Amino acid sequence: MTEDQRQRLRSLLAANGDGDSSAVAEICALAVAELAVSGVWVTLIAQTGTLATQQRLVRATDAIATRLEGLQFTVGEGPGLEAVVSGTAILAPDLTATASRWPAFTSGAQAAGAAAVFAFPLSLGTIRLGSLDCYRTTAGQLSSRQIAAALVLAEMTFEAVLSETAGRAHNDLGWITDIHAEVHQASGMVKYDLGITMEAALLRIRGYAYANDIPVAVVAQRIVNRELFLEEE
């Protein structure tokens, strides 16, 4: 079935492509239709252990998908990061059952309007670039055929990303417009101020954002503008 799915989806992508959109954008649009989901986003993730030290949005089909990507970055947990760490598909057909698994992400995702989330790693062997994530506004499982299609779409996304990053190291995310660039800048400033590692600085920023219910990008902006100084613990 997988090979049939691969050939069918590649044919659909070739037939539906308009030549103006990026391959990743076209794959996301195809994923919405094939998987019967409300929205899709693709994120590249560079990690140290289970911590995403860089996270960059490549494409999102709608505002809720963009918000869910930002939420995962803020709280440091969620299906996409788990998919990258584990190298396996993460299926959460009902977010009411994931409160203990991703407590911060679950509450935020539900508030954003998501009822189910699914994540598929962009991987080949030990190389893991990120994830293809989906959400639904109503709870419900993916069928076995939809899961097979999602795995093929993740494979196609991996190839599309590699084609756009030819000549770069697999963990070089600099070619993507970084919507979290100010967060990384702020992490560097907190690192210098407190004499801690970049990873610890990022955790401090995320923790402050979550504790005060402020978007991590807003916290970062305040740090960069020297309107906020995080204190030593």
Rank of each mutant, 00 (worst) to 15 (best):
T197A: 09
I147A: 02
A154T: 02
V218H: 08
A116G: 01
S123K: 03
T43L: 06
A139N: 08
R222A: 10
A89C: 12
T88C: 09
A65P: 14
A23E: 15
E199S: 06
L44F: 06
Y192T: 09
R168K: 01
K191Q: 13
I147D: 14
T126P: 05
A63Y: 01
V218W: 08
A31D: 15
L122E: 14
E155S: 06
V32N: 11
L202Y: 05
G39V: 04
R101Q: 10
A15P: 05
A92L: 15
V84D: 07
I127P: 00
E69T: 06
V218S: 12
I214W: 04
F120V: 08
A33K: 10
G113K: 01
P103Y: 04
I90H: 01
I179W: 11
Y192N: 12
A217K: 09
L35P: 12
D4I: 12
T50V: 08
I205C: 11
S100M: 14
W175C: 11
D178S: 12
M198Y: 04
A139C: 13
T88K: 05
E182G: 07
L194S: 04
Q141C: 06
A116E: 02
R6H: 01
E26G: 05
Y210H: 08
T53L: 05
G76D: 04
A14C: 00
T197S: 14
L30A: 11
T126E: 15
E69C: 13
L194Q: 11
D4K: 03
L132Y: 01
F105C: 08
A83N: 00
A23I: 13
V42F: 05
A52Q: 12
N212K: 10
T126S: 07
R10A: 09
L91Y: 03
G80I: 10
A181N: 07
A160G: 09
I64H: 02
N225H: 04
Q72T: 05
M1C: 09
R206A: 13
G130Q: 10
G188Q: 12
T43C: 10
G87A: 09
W175D: 14
S38M: 10
A99T: 11
P103Q: 08
S22V: 02
T98C: 13
S11Y: 02
E155P: 06
D193G: 07
